[in-house]
Write a protein that binds this DNA or RNA. Sequence first.
DNA 1: TTGTAGGCGTTATCAT
DNA 2: ATGATAACGCCTACAA
Lengths: 336, 336
Amino acid sequence: MNTVSIVDVAKHAGVSVTTVSRVMNNVDYPISKKTREKVLKAIDELQYTPNKAAQGLKNNFSDVIGLIVRDISDSYYGEIARGVTTRASELGYLSFVCNTGRNPEDELMYHDILWQHRVKGIILAAGGLDQVDYKNKLMNQLARHEKSGLNIVSLAPQGIEIPYVMINEFEAGKKITEYLIERGHTKIAFIGGPQKLYTSIERLKGFKSALDIAGIEYNKDYITKSDFSQNGGYEACKLLLSKVKDLTAICCANDNIAIGTMSALREHGYIIPKDISVISIGDINEAKYMIPPLTTLSIPHYEMGKMAVDVITQWKEKVEITLNASICERESVRTL
Amino acid sequence: MNTVSIVDVAKHAGVSVTTVSRVMNNVDYPISKKTREKVLKAIDELQYTPNKAAQGLKNNFSDVIGLIVRDISDSYYGEIARGVTTRASELGYLSFVCNTGRNPEDELMYHDILWQHRVKGIILAAGGLDQVDYKNKLMNQLARHEKSGLNIVSLAPQGIEIPYVMINEFEAGKKITEYLIERGHTKIAFIGGPQKLYTSIERLKGFKSALDIAGIEYNKDYITKSDFSQNGGYEACKLLLSKVKDLTAICCANDNIAIGTMSALREHGYIIPKDISVISIGDINEAKYMIPPLTTLSIPHYEMGKMAVDVITQWKEKVEITLNASICERESVRTL
DNA sequence: TTGTAGGCGTTATCAT
DNA sequence: ATGATAACGCCTACAA
């Protein structure tokens, strides 16, 4: 292991480490042109690059941001990760991407590890579990972090007070349902996400609210749950179709569900949107290329990721940013 | 900033830091039960967690793996990232995910930064550019890394000697073409990836080879390029359709291209696979849920990611692992 | 079985 | 304008 340190550079240039450090960090400190050049030359010749571990030890935090996501292979989180890594990189940060695989235990563990690495902050694109034990643990973590000066921002509702950058999930569910209602639909099913997830809960509430306002009777059989995955959407839709026959539209709580739903619908011989309309929430990359192209509520994932990094790096207390989401009209919804 | 260090624990427990360190690291060192318990209690009470920066400084490397990808929001890389982060986490590592946004300059910069962080190794799911200047720079990096003992493994052909875990890209292009030929197709178009990318180059070579072996005449108009994105595939297909009319099948160099292609085909009124067949390479998550479900060569991205981590953590010289890829038959190809 | 002390590479404080 | 040195938190030879 042939590592060159600041001491090597100092020796090579015939100056002190202090001087090298000053040159490296470009502080507005008077250094003679000649000395600076000597140092720069030595740095170049020795291919010196500072050791981040040492810097981190000294500064008590590293140029690193932690991102916790449910599933990095899901486009939803992929776009967030792209936003985070892009902006982080612009600001000289690197990003730890932590994949929970939808496992809350792992998620809590990641908080610890991230803290051990003295990251600048944590962006939480996971959690949101409506379970006392999970929520308590998360609050503990939050308290610890608060005490230790570690910044945290959430991209999804957590059911507790926490700085956030997100859309209004309730409005999201409401908007897509209203969109359908405005186009004459009344027999509308809803395929939701996990029952214990605040995101699902809010979107479902929005759905019910829209129905309620329009005076459409609420039918329990029309509501199914899934796990927010394509496969989950596929299974949920099949289950739904086995129970209900007179649907004219399906509200999917996210695009993955819609993708699975469309696949199941096709298997059953339904043509979209002639026989049945489909709408969802997310507008992930593939929505545009579905057949037919999917009408969906556009969530600015990439922007959310970028903004979250800004929140972490320019820390202020009490950040509560609600982003706009509007429906992207394509061809999966028909007007009755 | 209220950080508790090993010294605090030692004081609190009334022992030396050495003892605390030994307890923490669970080395098979004889420690009296009473002492161990005292230490454990102190650790718990103080909520002590070791500082990774300090550990990294001491050990000269950190429990971190760097992953460089072209586009983290692309399912192709998403699955790789999932494999990497999952396996890394199992082994106690964290992963820096570096997104090049398909920019070679950024990519080289990431090599530097990763080295500064003294990562255990770098997994390269990018690069592969057939350009002298890029290749030279990459080789420089490799040489530097070699000298410094930093492990590197590539998941794609780079045109230079480098440890790798990947599929045979040439065979991939050949296999999907043969699949079409076996089913009676002769008017076969090819929509490839970027011209300068070894992955594209190899897949195209494979296509041509299969044609050649089958004695099918090679038609230049049948071959188009894209950028491996859905949008690129869409545009390329539209261009193709404007020039060529008698196609019975299209070979897409990856699934994204196929997704865009199917979308374009639909716009032109073609029904898949009745009017035209589509096949591709990758088998990303959404392939299964396309309408119709996409027949594609299945690349084990997740496994590749996992194996790459093993290669990094259990380093041996000269790793050359070629993975199997077989065609996943679905409904986008018709037998003539 | 337990403890002392030096050093990893950097930055910051305090001389000169 | 430049340099010596202490400190960050951890691990590990070496002592005891």
